[in-house]
């Protein structure tokens, strides 16, 4: 790495080692504890409401393509689709990346298959609108209003278009459950949606719902990494307070490029 030093490399190694160890432990069948995210209960309620109203549900995986965040969002949406298949709800899933369609189709079809309702799966309801941010948002807003969706699930990577979609769904009285690691979009989702899964809870939600050993293990590994960093921060503050700014910990952790 161009701007790393032994201390920073060691820290990276510790975090990676913690994640890998926990993934392998999890794969060997040792399921670690994960606390339930409160917003997840809302998913079942929202599906129930769409069933009562007999109106479709909007599944929105954000603006991402085939990337880690969008694939994690798809895992949550596949869980929703499974519930939809069970109760016979129609789902509509507009996407902003054409290459994501087959991946989404496969995941959603599999959800219907698991419920033994593959004949109810409608491939045409997973559609590409546009990869231009606001054109996509305008398209989703139109869909929400025309189809009068009962519930909207917004999970994935969102930018400025998030409020346009959430606000439109709010105006027609749809129940909305959202989750995103995009910090700047969380406030609007909180304002316009009924339930919101915030920040890192998004990754925890995927692990909790899927119980996929790799996801569960990496979540626990990340927790260890976070704990190590928090400990370093607390130690750093204490040592800097006692020894002043020119101390050994500060010098260890100051990357070489910063000293130049």
């Amino acid at each position: 790495m161009e701007h790393s030093d032994p201390v920073n490399s060691t820290l990276t190694f510790i975090i990676c080692a913690a994640i890998l160890t926990m993934i392998f432990r999890s794969r060997r069948g040792k399921q670690p504890f994960i606390r339930r995210i409160p917003g997840l209960n809302a998913i079942d309620d929202a599906v129930g409401r769409a069933t009562e109203m007999g109106r479709p549900m909007l599944l929105q995986p954000g603006l991402g393509g085939i990337d880690v965040i969008t694939l994690q969002a798809l895992a949550i949406l596949a869980y929703v689709a499974r519930a939809a298949a069970r109760f016979g709800n129609r789902i509509i899933m507009p996407v902003a990346d054409a290459s994501f369609i087959p991946v989404a189709e496969e995941a959603i079809r599999e959800s219907y298959n698991l419920e033994g309702r593959v004949e109810s799966f409608r491939a045409e309801d997973i559609m590409f609108l546009s990869d231009r941010q606001f054109a996509f948002a305008a398209g989703v807003a139109g869909l929400i209003n025309r189809e009068k969706v009962a519930t909207a699930f917004l999970f994935g990577l969102f930018f400025a278009e998030s409020l346009i979609m959430a606000e439109n769904a709010n105006q027609i009285g749809a129940i909305q459950v959202a989750g995103t690691p995009s910090t700047t979009q969380i406030p609007f989702l909180i304002a316009a949606c009924d339930y919101v899964i915030i920040g890192d809870e998004f990754y925890a939600a995927t692990a909790f719902l899927t119980r996929e050993p790799t996801l569960v293990g990496s979540l626990v590994g990340q927790d260890i990494g976070k704990a190590v960093i928090l400990l370093i921060c607390i130690l750093g503050v204490l040592i800097t307070t006692i020894m002043g700014p020119d101390n050994f910990l500060m010098n260890w952790f100051t990357p070489l490029w910063w000293k130049r």
Binding site: N8, G236, V237, T240, T241, P245, L249, F253, P255, W258
Partner: peptide
Amino acid sequence: YYKQIVTTFKPIV
């Protein structure tokens, strides 16, 4: 992020 870890090392007195 590594630089941000270092910038949390702030004296509290």
